[in-house]
């Protein structure tokens, strides 16, 4: 109810107009109905007169009123949907960001040019402000729905299909976003942190992540432990291949952790990121977000988890 983009503010005004009109119509209808119970005297009418009165009401209220209202709605309000179509822009291609829904987190990809690899991150969406952005949506498992309430409407993410929605943030800012289609046990805990940045800041942010990753040394205990317990599902760019223990077969993918240290939340918005938060999450994630897809870590001692957590907090571009 606090629009921050053109699509949302369109709908904001459409809503208030419709609300005003509806309240007037409803009150008039109620008043007419109740009035019929209040009258004491009834004139004698011939069937012809009765017919005329009936026609007046039914043609006026039953036909004319709804026809006029819905024609008005269709003519004035329906075309506002055009703004959200990914039509070609006069100034060229709109910025494109891919979002993939998972149970229950978000994978965000910034497509690379030609052979360049995509920039991949999770649960935090950074977008340029003041220009339209095309979000290309799909899902890896069940149907999710992508919704940034203050920017505009939502769009479902359907496995096997891609669909595009165009949104725009007028000013830089931070917005909440969420999965809007019921997607299982942790539907509630599927939140997304959206940041709109000035174009320059956005380019800088992206460039930082575009640069090729530095290889990670295989000395530290935390790195070894990560390789043993986590790397089968979670990618970290530059992580030494040799340390990855993929003996355990997993058919799910966890979020990419390359820049996890720079993210504002953990567990798709369940926990704010602070010092020690990752270690805490690793120990208690099944209580913090019951049913999430990461297996419990009861078999790993607390010290190792704290090590891994501390190491991950350093993962920033």
């Amino acid at each position: 109810m606090d629009p921050a983009g053109p699509a949302a503010s369109h709908q904001f005004w459409v809503w208030w107009a419709m609300l005003f009109f509806s309240v007037v119509v409803a009150l008039v209808v109620f008043a007419l109905w109740l009035y019929t119970f209040r009258r004491r005297e009834q004139p004698q009418r011939t069937p012809r007169e009765e017919q005329r009165i009936m026609l007046r009401w039914v043609l006026g209220g039953g036909v004319l009123l709804p026809v006029v209202s819905i024609v008005a709605l269709l003519v004035f309000a329906a075309p506002t949907g055009r703004g959200m179509l990914p039509l070609p822009l006069p100034e060229g291609e709109a910025e494109r960001i891919e979002v993939v829904g998972h149970q229950w987190w978000w994978e965000i990809r910034y497509p690379g040019e030609e052979d360049e690899p995509d920039v991949v991150t999770a649960n935090r969406l950074v977008m340029p402000a003041g220009e339209p952005v095309d979000f290309r949506l799909t899902s890896a498992d069940v149907i999710h729905s992508f919704w940034i309430p203050r920017l505009g409407g939502k769009r479902d993410m359907v496995p096997g299909r891609h669909s595009t929605i165009r949104l725009e943030a007028s000013e830089p800012g931070v917005f909440g976003a969420q999965c809007a289609e019921f997607c299982g046990a942790q539907h509630t805990g599927m939140l997304l942190h959206v940041e709109a940045l000035e174009r320059d800041d956005y380019d800088a942010w992206l460039a930082e992540r575009r640069s090729p990753p530095e290889p990670i040394g295989d000395e530290a205990d935390a790195v070894r432990a990560f390789g043993e317990h986590c790397a089968a599902c979670h990618t970290v760019a530059g992580f030494p291949e040799a340390l990855v223990d993929d003996g355990v077969a997993h058919d799910i993918v966890g979020p990419d952790l390359t820049d996890i240290g720079s993210r504002p939340t953990l567990g798709a918005g369940v926990l704010p990121m602070e010092e020690g938060a990752i270690a805490y999450w690793l120990q208690h994630h099944q209580t913090l977000k019951p049913g999430n897809r990461m297996p419990p870590h009861n078999h790993i001692d607390t010290e190792t988890l704290q090590d891994i957590g501390a190491w991950l907090e350093t993962m920033e571009p």
Binding site: V29, M54, W57, G62
Partner: peptide, 30 residues
């Protein structure tokens, strides 16, 4: 848009019924 328009169309028969009921009350002694 087709379905949106069709959905709005339902308002017409609904309104017809509401005003038929209203005029029945109007012409009767409820």
């Amino acid at each position: 848009a087709f379905f949106s328009a069709a959905s709005m169309l339902v308002a017409i028969p609904t309104a017809i019924q509401i005003f038929v009921w209203l005029s029945t009350l109007w012409l009767g002694r409820p």
